[in-house]
Design a protein around this nucleic acid. Structure first.
Lengths: 339, 339
DNA sequence: CGTGATAACGGTACCGGTATCGATAACATG
DNA sequence: CATGTTATCGATACCGGTACCGTTATCACG
């Protein structure tokens, strides 16, 4: 059973291909009676339309390519969700690709995405290698880099400063009176943004002549289970620790569960801090500090940037809205006054 | 800066369009020297290739359309992740669409997906309305329905029986000596699979002349926060409950946190049971029972089904592998011998 | 009644690739 | 030297739509 074409619909309706095309797209110059016949023919053949042909012919796909590093962590799906809702009703459609935190794979995925001639492309972070950047630039479409601000954007940029986030958390934890601070993280070679948070955090410590009293690192991807395991290990070795900074909330939540099983009271004995502000963090039986990154909002902002850019492109007036949208993640779960 | 075309690459290399095409695709009958010249030309123009034209011309897109109801819950991203890894290296590419648990929106998304002429399509569940089914059938491509088995598949089917899962959990909880069982759920009108689990669970209870001693339902989507809130409410009203079945693990985890804050010991005083087997459930400070659904494996199985179907399609031999792949989720977090 | 405007529709040329068949040249072979 | 073979490349016809311009018929109007 082959898919039926516009030609077949037209034949069944007794009109030309061109008239059928106009009728189905709701053009004004086609008789009402003819339009009905064409629509019925399309219905009877359950005609679907070929967007390959449409896009090739009309020279616009209305596709937005999106490349994220992972789908396992909840944070990227949430950004994607924000993008799709932001794009809803605009006639644009998002297509997703996963790079697995791999630069080479990312370049191939981007090349693949670009071959579909998208109207815009959204990529994660600002740390693409040179050839990837070159490819993105020569695509001749709006490029939006999301999630991160620390670096030089190609075109548009939506996100937050992970350096600032790490710095602010360090300042807040020191202000809360914590001195023996440890670090637990994973896959820092892959997750560059977590690395930026950690580095900025350490700079604050160094300014106070402090440093992490202990570090637990792991190659595996972050997870609650991993955070729990590493934390249990660390606490057994260094019980004097009064605060742990994690690479993200998954790890921190695992850390909390490790503390609960070890009978350590959070946050009075030990303060745990992560990053992301997952929904989870609002419901945990003990508070963990976190920087609430507005993931869905960032996705929507990227989407709006694109729809705006398309509108400006039509008018070809140039000089559109801002090229950079900055989000500032508030810190939650940290009450002043702890000792 | 317009995207460069194959024609331009060919001109720069001093050959015809056809030869350039062959050179870039690694055809055997093109001189080594010519191939080099073409590749350099492509490199210099950072030529990307137009898959719209390619697919239109060659009549195959190697695209796999995937429609899931949501991206907020972790379970669907995990399935998607399984699909992409299962498709990796096969030359196929997955495209995702989100239906927001809405039948009308789902139909539009599917129509949209089909207009891209995918080589196969994966949809969630077996409960599509008639016109959607008709559209899927007349697409003339393999249709894979995933996640659920309870119903009549269109073509291929990968998943687990949610009826069985609900039944098995009920049996297991009764075997563990629980009698005063309550239910906490959300969005059952949208999440049909959760509804199937609940119905089957209730049938087991009814067979023992039992029924839920209390029910807390909510229209909102499932979340840890919602599970916590509903559970706290329920426990305050009916402290005699000794077991709660949840619509899924998110809700159950929230329930656990509510119990911990209320000073109720899990699982000795009250047993909590969910569904999905999220990674989270392995690390919680107290065990919750759950049915471990192999989400990533289901995605990979669906992908393999497709790649197999494509191979058979080439040979046109017909009568390929199985049309249905059944998964049986094991129950974890429930130790025999509790009283 | 000739003219022009308008409504409704068709014809043709693309869009950027690939399939298919042919053409050409170089070379080996009897 | 005529012929066949092989390697390499080009010309042409699509794929299924849309853009653009042209055509035809009808009707109002001076």
């Amino acid at each position: 059973m082959r898919r039926s074409t516009l030609e077949e619909v037209a034949a069944l309706a007794g009109v030309s291909k061109m008239t059928a095309s106009r009728a189905l797209r709701g053009s004004s110059d086609v008789a009402e009676e003819t339009r009905r016949r064409v629509q019925q023919a399309a219905e009877r053949l359950s005609y679907v339309g070929n967007r390959l042909a449409l896009s090739l012919s009309s020279q616009r796909t209305n596709l937005v390519a999106v490349v994220v590093p992972s789908m396992s962590n909840t944070v990227f799906p949430e950004v994607l969700s924000g993008i799709t809702t932001g794009l809803a009703g605009t006639g644009m459609q998002a297509v997703f690709g996963i790079s697995d935190y791999d630069e080479v794979k990312e370049r191939e995925i981007i090349r693949d995405m670009l071959s579909w001639q998208p109207s815009a492309i959204i990529v994660t972070g600002l740390d693409q290698p040179h050839d990837t950047v070159r490819m993105l630039k020569s695509a001749g479409i709006p490029v939006i880099q999301v999630m991160d601000l620390d670096g030089t954007p190609i075109d548009f940029n939506v996100g937050l400063s992970h350096g600032d986030a790490g710095r602010d958390m360090a300042v807040a934890l020191l202000a809360a009176g914590r001195k023996k601070i440890a670090y637990v993280g994973s896959a820092l070679d892959k997750d560059l943004r977590a690395g930026k948070r950690k580095a900025a955090f350490q700079r604050v410590l160094a300014a106070q002549s402090l440093s992490f009293v202990s570090e637990q690192l792991d190659d595996g991807f972050s997870s609650i289970a991993l955070g729990k395991r590493l934390t249990a290990h660390m606490l057994a070795a260094k019980p004097e620790i009064d605060c742990i900074y994690y690479s993200n909330d998954d790890m921190a939540a695992g850390g909390l569960f490790a503390c609960m099983e070890a009978g350590i009271i959070v946050p009075s004995q030990i303060v745990l801090a992560g990053f992301n502000g997952l929904d989870l963090t609002d419901s945990l039986p003990a508070p963990i500090a976190t920087s609430k990154s507005p993931r869905r909002a960032m996705g929507e902002a990227a989407a709006r940037l694109i729809t705006d850019a398309m509108k400006d492109g039509e008018k070809s007036s140039g000089e559109a809205g801002p090229k950079t949208i900055v989000f500032k993640p508030p810190i939650t779960g940290l009450k002043q006054g702890w000792t």
